[in-house]
Structure formats: C-alpha cells, structure tokens
C-alpha cells in the first residue's frame, strides 16, 4: 500500500534562481519523516517537489530524480495528475473549498475520476466519506452536519477535513506542509495523534518549524539549512530522530536543535 521514496541529486529552481541544491535521501514506507530547519532553507520547496506541486509556480522546475517505488515521477511520460493523486498533500493553511459542504469536500478528489468498477452511487460515497472522516478523527464531530459548509468548522477541524479529503483518494504517500502552524495547541495535539494513526498505512513526510513536534511524531528527521548567505538550501543531515536530537553528526544540526540559532 504505502510506497518508498528515493530522491537523488535533486536541484530545485525558481526560474534562474537555484533554491535547493543536490538533495539525496530516501523515505521508507510507513514511516514519518520530518523536515526541520530555519525559515527559507527550502524544506517546503523540497516537499512540494515530491508530488510535482513545485512546478505549479510559474517558472519553477527541477533537475534530478524522485523515485516512487523505483518509478521516476519526473519521467517525460509521467502524468503529474496521476502523481498528485498517488501522493496526497496537506497544506500550511487549511484549505477546504469554501463553497462545498463537508461531504462534498471529502469526495472532491474521488468525483474527478470516473474509473471503471469504482461505484459512485450515494451509498458507496457515503461509505467513503465516513471512512475518510473516521480516518481523520473527525467523524464524531461532524457526522450530524455533513451538508454544512466546510469553512464553518474550526481551524483544527478544517485541517482534519483536508486530511480526510487527501486520504479519501487512497494515496500512497501523504505530504504535510507545516500542517499545524495555523492551529492552536489542542488542535495541534489532535493532528499529531492522527499522524500517529496514519503512519500505520501511509508513508508520511511532514515539514515542521516546531522541533518538539518533529521529535514527537517522526521516526526519521532531516535537517535543512542554507549553504551560506545567498547560497541555495541543502540537506545537512538525515537520520533517526533520536540521534538527530541527541548526537547529530554535524555541528550545524547540533546548533539548530539545541536552539543556538534559527
């Protein structure tokens, strides 16, 4: 079900500007990998290249390979639409579609594909909605108001709705771009619990500013930093979360996790 990701020698550009240089790493299936590092070092940029959302920005492109179970998602015959379907994404700010109900938000992705053999009748849609909302720990809170607009929920609920929307299409990988940065501590806790559950089934990559959060939810941590002022971002080191936070190899990582800079 969940797939592994292998990134090799990835250079990421915004037009002529090289934003991130020479990133190489692997993500094991059914693990949570956290990207940490100071602002502007390219964590989110790297994350967005994993499902080809980076190229949505005009002029943005990459050089290098991103393999999903051995298949390069940047191959010329790969359809980015299929990539994004296979690799779901949750954004920094909760973004349920404001004109859609909670129910319609959850099935928004499924409604796009009219695949043979997949039923789209009311009953099977109901089942998908319930399963996804339960998967996002939101079902109990919204089951009585599925036809209400998604924008009426609290911030934390909206973010879990977005997670439900992402997992409703049964992706292989879930990317989370600072999913808790716009939320209060209690909602953050709910999302962190949810990540704990989701990693049973999905490969998860999460960008976070919050080192405690990285320590709590992830098994592997990657530290990103700028190579220098005006230089592109790079991955400094990656390893088991416990090691990164206790005995990192690089001095820069140690300085960052101990709060000496950043």
């Amino acid at each position: 079900m969940a797939k592994r990701i292998d990134v090799s020698d990835l250079d990421i550009y915004y037009s002529k500007f090289l934003a991130v240089e020479g990133v190489t790493f692997s993500v094991e299936p059914r693990t949570v990998t956290a990207f940490i590092g100071p602002s502007g070092c390219g964590k989110s940029t790297v994350l967005r290249t994993l499902n080809r959302m980076h190229e949505v920005i005009p002029g943005a492109y990459v050089n290098g390979k991103v393999l999903l179970d051995g298949e390069n998602i940047y191959d010329s015959d790969v359809d980015p639409v299929n990539v994004r379907r296979t690799i779901g994404m949750v954004f920094q700010r909760p973004n349920p579609f404001p004109t859609m109900s909670i129910y319609d938000n959850v099935i928004a992705g499924i409604k796009l594909e009219r695949t043979k053999g997949v039923k789209r009748d009311r009953a099977s849609m109901d089942a998908v909605v319930e399963k996804s909302l339960r998967g996002a720990n939101l079902w109990e809170e919204v089951k009585d108001r599925l036809s209400r607009p998604g924008s009426g929920l609290s911030g934390g609920q909206q973010q879990r709705l977005c997670i439900a929307r992402a997992i409703a299409v049964e992706p292989q990988v879930l990317l989370m771009d600072e999913p808790c940065s716009a939320l209060d501590p209690i909602s953050t806790l709910a999302i962190e619990d949810l990540i704990e559950d989701l990693k049973e089934r999905y490969t998860i990559v999460i960008v976070t500013h919050n080192m405690q959060q990285a320590a709590r939810v992830s098994s592997t941590t990657a530290f990103f930093n700028l190579a220098g002022i005006g230089q592109p971002g790079r991955m400094v080191e990656m390893g088991p979360t416990a090691k990164i936070f206790s005995t990192p190899t690089e001095k820069a990582t140690e300085d960052y996790v101990s709060g000496r800079f950043g």
């Binding site: 499902n51 959302m53 949505v56 639409v81 299929n82 990539v83 994004r84 379907r85 779901g88 994404m89 954004f91 700010r93 973004n95 349920p96 579609f97 404001p98 928004a108 992705g109 796009l112 594909e113 977005c162 929307r165 992402a166 299409v169």
Partner: peptide, 12 residues
Amino acid sequence: EHVEGALALGAT
C-alpha cells in the same frame, strides 16, 4: 490555497 488544493488532489 484553493487552486493548489485542487491540483494536489489530482485535478487537471
């Protein structure tokens, strides 16, 4: 966010 949300779901 809405534009990217739709694209990230695999919309053309």
